[in-house]
Design a binder for these strands. Structure first.
Lengths: 204, 204
DNA sequence: TAAATTCTGTACCGATCAGTAAAGATGTAT
DNA sequence: ATACATCTTTACTGATCGGTACAGAATTTA
């Protein structure tokens, strides 16, 4: 009924939009986590039936991974943008304020998929949990590298420790994610972010 | 085979120790979360069979709540102790160092049950999730009240905000819990804690 | 048009979920 | 000893889990 994916093949065209379906699945996983989201939840939200889902995305784990990719590209584009700020301080400020905004956004579920997707889980979801751990660590590494560059450029005091700073601010953001999952408002998160900035080197 | 619970009634005595069983259940919920822990996981760890569990603790949710009570009393006794420190600063320092120690303890699972027990979940576990939210908020309230008292006593600068400080440090601890769930070492958590203390009022 | 291909819908699969019925086992009370 | 109360064991329940077989519908290619 809609456009076909132009995959250059014959056969009956897909009657739903891949991207829309993925977005619907994202919201379900985001609210309920990997384990808490059932296939019935997912296909209902995606407005397709089970075999269509399996044909298009593979099994539940494959679907989740594609959802993760989409999440990383969409809901956290601000991370990359933050890295482009001219000074280290502004990088972190932007990261924190962006997190406050995103984690308690009126559109989209609360919290962070990379945190609440599968913080812990049963045995069969171990791979998913480890994938999320890896993605969280990747964020921390990104920030650490950015701060190292800043230090080399003289943009951070000599006695400062980029690794320590990255750990700290990523940890704060993850704490904010827990707060958001519990219903914290944007304003509350913003205040936490502001307080965290008092730890910035040179404030002593 | 062991001592009976001295409940003053006749009948066949319980052949397992209630407290031991509860501890075993605690560790399972702690590692796998409420949803991720199956009854088979639980009864295997508790070394009892299903009807014995139901008779002694009620259903899965009741068991979880009793586990929560036990967790609050045992694994977080340090919270109450911290509150008894003489100065606000030492209260928070002790809270942070205690968290670093507990969250990545070699005995006992990593992370915080109140965070990872059910940060998000499917529909049928909503009550459990809300209970955990309430327990997390209770912690924040405790700290806030302690800091308010400190401010009244002149133990905190006049321009400081106990509510803001409590939010911030609880958020940091929750972030540390996420880090711990992902495998962070004690040393890493300790460094985060130390950095967080740079936000302490009067450091500007 | 007919053949080939791919998607959709229904209806199902075995496994596992949380929870329980019923009978035998083991203690206390008399 | 006998009666009674409670616990343990085995085996089971209906519901739901993730995943799929199969037939019919819809499209492209020839």
């Amino acid at each position: 009924m809609k456009k076909h994916k132009q995959n250059g093949r014959q056969g009956r065209p897909r009657s739903f939009d891949l991207d829309q379906a993925l977005t619907a699945a994202l919201h379900v996983f985001w609210r309920k986590g990997y384990e808490g989201a059932t296939l019935s939840d997912l296909t209902r939200a995606m407005r397709i039936n089970r075999p269509s889902m399996y044909a298009a995305f593979g099994d539940k784990e494959h679907l989740f991974r594609k959802v993760l990719d989409r999440y990383d590209q969409e809901a956290t584009a601000f991370m990359t943008e933050a890295m482009d700020e001219p000074t280290a301080r502004r990088v972190v400020e932007r990261l924190l304020s962006g997190a406050a905004k995103k984690l308690a956004s009126p559109q989209g579920p609360r919290g962070c998929l990379n945190v609440q997707g599968a913080l812990v889980c049963g045995d069969e979801a171990k791979n998913v949990r480890n994938e999320l751990i890896a993605r969280r660590e990747k964020r921390e590494t990104e920030l650490r590298e950015r701060l190292r560059k800043a230090k080399t450029a003289g943009d951070l005091p000599r006695e400062s420790d980029p690794s320590e700073l990255a750990s700290f601010f990523i940890t704060v953001i993850q704490g904010m994610a827990v707060q958001a999952a519990g219903g914290a408002t944007r304003e509350k998160l913003r205040r936490v972010a502001r307080t965290a900035m008092r730890s910035w080197p040179g404030n002593r």
